[in-house]
Computed example of a mutant assay.
Amino acid sequence: MDSVSQTPFERYQPWRRSVEVGFWVVTYLVSAIGNSLTANMDVSRLALDFASWQPVAWEASSAIASLALIPAVVWFTRRWPLHLDNWRQMLPAHLLASVAWSALHVIGMVAIRKAVYATQGQHYDFGNWWWEFGYEYLKDIRSYAGVVATIEVYRFVLRRWQGEASLLDVPDDGPPMESVERPERFLVRKLGREFLVGANDIEWMQASGNYVNLRMRGHDYPLRSTIGGIEGKLDPDRFVRVHRSYIVNLDQVGSIEPLDTGDARVHMKDGSNLPCSRTYRGGLRQRVGQDG
């Protein structure tokens, strides 16, 4: 696909990883510098007996320990996403995660401080661990909440920018215009616009955490569902599971390439090559043969 036909979202993808990593690095770098400056100003104003490098070590160690935990929070929020419609169910898990965040943050920053102090021939004393951990947790739970909120808002913006699919709701009055259990169309919201796409237009689907990406005409639209959940709503005469993470539209299958491992590779008409595990290979070949 050339750059002229790519959407802004697709043009962003090569830069996405760098932007995401850069955002967190810059955020914690700016925070560490700003906090170090203000801490040194307080030390000078109150005439405290601290060298100028010590506040820098405190703030830098906290920032480095927090930054190292960001990938874990990204993974955790994929597994247990926090949305407006599920926050009550997810809150206990995230409260436990905030305790883990704080414990790892404290252990990491204390270890770094001890190492820095040792290079200066000094010993770093964290104090009473239970008391100090309680103090740090009151700050860390707010930091954890801020990180989770930033991640979830960013993902929400990405989904709307990309285009997010959903099942049609049951109307408030009267019967639905089509079967809710076997939907023929999906509603896609994209940048403030809404439009309907036919289920038959879906070429293939891929599980992605708590979402299933619907592939249509070169674009992916995430649908909040498990792969098994959406499989049960699709027309079994048209859609077939080929892998624990993939479902294909039989009309869009070009060919099936057997592999020496017993698995197979599914060549789609749009040029995509999808894995087919041996568990589903026989059923796929039978279906394609019957349909052909």
Rank of each mutant, 00 (worst) to 15 (best):
S143A: 13
E181A: 09
R142T: 11
A145L: 14
W130S: 11
Y137H: 05
R193W: 00
E181Q: 07
F133S: 08
R185E: 04
V180H: 07
Y154D: 12
S143Q: 11
L138T: 14
W130Q: 09
Q162D: 09
V188K: 02
Y135W: 09
Y135C: 03
M177Y: 00
P171A: 10
E181K: 06
L187N: 08
L191N: 08
I141D: 02
L167Q: 01
G163Y: 03
V170R: 13
E136L: 03
D173R: 01
F195H: 11
R142W: 13
L187A: 12
R182D: 03
Y135H: 06
E132L: 05
V170M: 07
V170I: 12
V157I: 15
G146F: 08
G192C: 01
R159C: 12
K190F: 00
F156V: 14
E136Y: 04
F195S: 13
M177V: 08
P171M: 05
A165F: 03
G192H: 00
E132D: 08
M177L: 11
E152R: 15
P176A: 02
L167I: 02
A149R: 05
V157F: 13
L138K: 13
V170G: 01
I151K: 06
E194I: 01
R155V: 15
L158P: 09
I141H: 02
G146C: 10
G146Y: 08
M177G: 04
A145R: 08
P176I: 02
Y154C: 11
I151Y: 05
E164F: 07
L168C: 03
V157W: 13
P183L: 00
R160M: 14
E136Q: 12
R160G: 05
G146Q: 10
G174R: 11
D169E: 12
Y144R: 03
E152A: 10
S166T: 07
S166I: 02
G192T: 03
L138R: 14
S166F: 02
D140V: 03
E152P: 10
E184H: 05
G174H: 07
V147F: 05
R155H: 15
P175M: 03
P176E: 05
F133N: 10
R185T: 06
R142V: 14
F156A: 15
F156Q: 14
L158E: 15
E184V: 04
D169W: 00
E194V: 06
E132C: 01
L138N: 10
E136H: 06
G174E: 08
P176F: 01
G174A: 05
E181L: 07
